[in-house]
Nucleic acid binder design. Structure first.
Length: 253
DNA sequence: CGATTTTGACCCGCGC
DNA sequence: GCGCGGGTCAAAATCG
C-alpha cells in the first residue's frame, strides 16, 4: 500500500470514527447496567472513571455498529461535571465461536466473567492492557436475541495512541447504518471529508440490533463499497490526483 | 517463569 | 435490614 493510500484510508477511518461519535445514538432500551457510567459504576472508587470522548473503538469480523452514549454526571455542587463515554459496538460473529473476543486493535486483559440475569450468555469484563494507566474498560456479551451478535460496551477513553491503528483500518470503516455517508473530496490536497451526519435524518437509532443485522449483510457491504467507489470516481480531480500518485509510484512504467 | 485467563468469593448499590 | 445482582478481586490454573 502506498503512503498516500495509507494516509487516505487513515483519514477516512479517523473522520468516520469522529463523526459516529458525534451522532450520539441512543441504543434502545439501554439497560441500567449501561448507566454504570453514572456514579454507580464507581462503587469502587479506586478507579476513577476518567472523562470524555473517544472514537477509536472499532471491531472486526463481519459487521459492526457503534453507538455512543455519553453519560454526564449531574453537575456537582462546585460545578464540575465528569463525563464518561459509553460506546456500544455490535459485532457479528460465527455463532459457534464461543470466545468473547472483539478484536479492535487494542490489547485487552480479561479480569472477570459473569452470567447476568437478563442474558443467559456470560458477560466478559476487560481492561485495556496496552497502558497500565489506561482507564478504559470493555464489557462483551452475546446478544440475548441473536447469539451471532457480540455486544461490546466500551467505558471511558484511551489515554494512549491506538497500538494497531493502521493495520486495523478496514474495520474502522464499517458502516453504521443504511449507507449513511456522503463523501466530498478535495483533490488539491490529500484530504477527504466524510459527512456521516447525512444518515437519513434522525440521529435516533430505532432498533440497534436490527441495524446490526442489516449492516452485516453482504448486500449492505456491497452497496457501501459501490457508493464509495461511485463517489470517489465521480470526482475528476480526485481521480486525476489518484492517477498521478499511482504513476509516481510506478516510475518504470 | 512471566503473562494471561479462569472462576469463586467478595463488595457495594439498589429495591423492597 | 435483607436479598439480589452487577462489577471486581485475587488465587489458581493455563499458556507460550
Amino acid at each position: 500500500m502506498s503512503e498516500e493510500n495509507r494516509r487516505l484510508t487513515e483519514m477516512i477511518a479517523c473522520l468516520y470514527g469522529s463523526q459516529i461519535t458525534r451522532q450520539s445514538l441512543e441504543s434502545e432500551g439501554e439497560p441500567p447496567a449501561s448507566t454504570a457510567a453514572s456514579p454507580t459504576s464507581t462503587k469502587r472508587s479506586r478507579e476513577s472513571m476518567e472523562t470524555s470522548n473517544s472514537g477509536d473503538a472499532n471491531s472486526n469480523k463481519i459487521g459492526t455498529v457503534e453507538a455512543d452514549h455519553v453519560d454526564a454526571q449531574s453537575p456537582a455542587s462546585d460545578g464540575t461535571c465528569q463525563r464518561i463515554v459509553m460506546k456500544k459496538v455490535c459485532t457479528r460473529i460465527d455463532p459457534s465461536d464461543t470466545s468473547l473476543v472483539v478484536k479492535d486493535g487494542y490489547q485487552w486483559r480479561k479480569y472477570g466473567q459473569k452470567v447476568t440475569r437478563d442474558n443467559p450468555s456470560p458477560r466478559a469484563y476487560f481492561r485495556c492492557a496496552f497502558a497500565p494507566s489506561c482507564p478504559v474498560k470493555k464489557k462483551v456479551q452475546r446478544s440475548a436475541e441473536d447469539s451471532s451478535v457480540l455486544e461490546a460496551t466500551y467505558e471511558g477513553e484511551h489515554n494512549h495512541p491506538h497500538p494497531a491503528r493502521s493495520s486495523n483500518l478496514p474495520s474502522c470503516a464499517t458502516p453504521s447504518g443504511p449507507v449513511p455517508c456522503s463523501i466530498s473530496i478535495n483533490s488539491t490536497r490529500p484530504t477527504i471529508t466524510l459527512d456521516l451526519t447525512k444518515n437519513g435524518g434522525s440521529a435516533q437509532q430505532p432498533d440497534l440490533k436490527k441495524v446490526c443485522r442489516e449492516v452485516a449483510s453482504p448486500e449492505f457491504q456491497a452497496a457501501l463499497v459501490e457508493q464509495m467507489a461511485r463517489e470517489l470516481t465521480s470526482d475528476q480531480k480526485f481521480t486525476e490526483a489518484l492517477a498521478a500518485a499511482i504513476l509516481r509510484k510506478l516510475p518504470d512504467y
